[in-house]
Write a protein that binds this DNA or RNA. Structure first.
Length: 212
DNA sequence: TAGGCCATCTGGTCCT
DNA sequence: AGGACCAGATGGCCTA
């Protein structure tokens, strides 16, 4: 192509070695920064990542963090994604409830803000409140607004089709990556998997970024 | 021992 | 030109 990867002048073996060292060092640093960000994300997800079946391992984890195996990178990402989606659906549900309350009691009455302040977010674990586990986030994800108020019934394990994004195991390479349709966020068709109840996405093969 | 997860190296491409 | 980004290859560690 027009861009040549070859250097303008030949490098001596020592210079090549030094250049390689520099490049490798940069790449190492880049990956370490990525891992730091991943750890920060893990830290946020830890309260929702408890797994009763996980055993202690020699892998390091945050001091003070609950014992158990550290979340893998893919699990962390899937967990975080589902967590975000669940927050969205919870917000939607809250808005719906807020609308019902407003209709029943009048817009300018006091109870509405108090409901917001004291009602508790559904993601906060507590007596009678929705408790999220790693399993629920990895497998059930954001439930539909109509089902999000029930704590345990939203997990539709009986559904035949499963979305690759919600699988607790490694993603099926044939299904990833996914591209979410823009229509889905505004009440469009849902994912046909029947489990995640998320806006439909299309499984497509991305165009190679670097065409040969 | 197989499989999962990970860090590192490496070469290619894109971006500033 | 040099750095950033990406993906494939490789080998080590750990667990079931």
């Amino acid at each position: 192509g027009p861009r040549s990867a070859k250097p303008q002048r030949e490098l001596s073996p020592e210079e090549q070695q030094e250049l390689r060292r520099k490049i490798n060092s940069r790449e190492r640093k880049r990956m370490q920064d990525l891992n730091i960000a991943m750890d920060a994300l893990r830290e946020v997800m830890v309260p929702y990542a408890s797994s009763p079946s996980s055993a202690s391992s020699s892998q390091s984890h945050q001091p003070g963090a609950p014992p158990g195996r550290r979340l893998s990178k893919i699990s962390t990402l899937v967990l975080a994604r589902n967590y975000i989606l669940l927050l969205g659906s919870s917000l939607q549900e809250m808005r719906r409830l807020l609308g019902e309350v407003s209709v029943g009691m009048g817009v300018n009455t006091g109870p509405v803000p108090r409901l917001l302040l004291t009602g508790g977010w559904p993601l906060i674990s507590g007596p009678g409140q929705l408790l999220l586990s790693q399993e629920s986030l990895l497998t059930s994800s954001a439930s539909s607004p109509s089902a999000s108020s029930s704590s345990s019934s939203s997990t539709s394990s009986s559904s035949a089709a499963k979305c690759a994004l919600l699988s607790s195991g490694p993603m099926d390479a044939s299904l990833a990556p996914v591209q979410w349709s823009s229509a889905g966020a505004s009440g469009g068709p849902l994912c046909p998997c029947g489990v995640c109840r998320l806006p439909r996405f299309s499984h497509s093969t991305p165009a190679p970024r670097f065409p040969k």
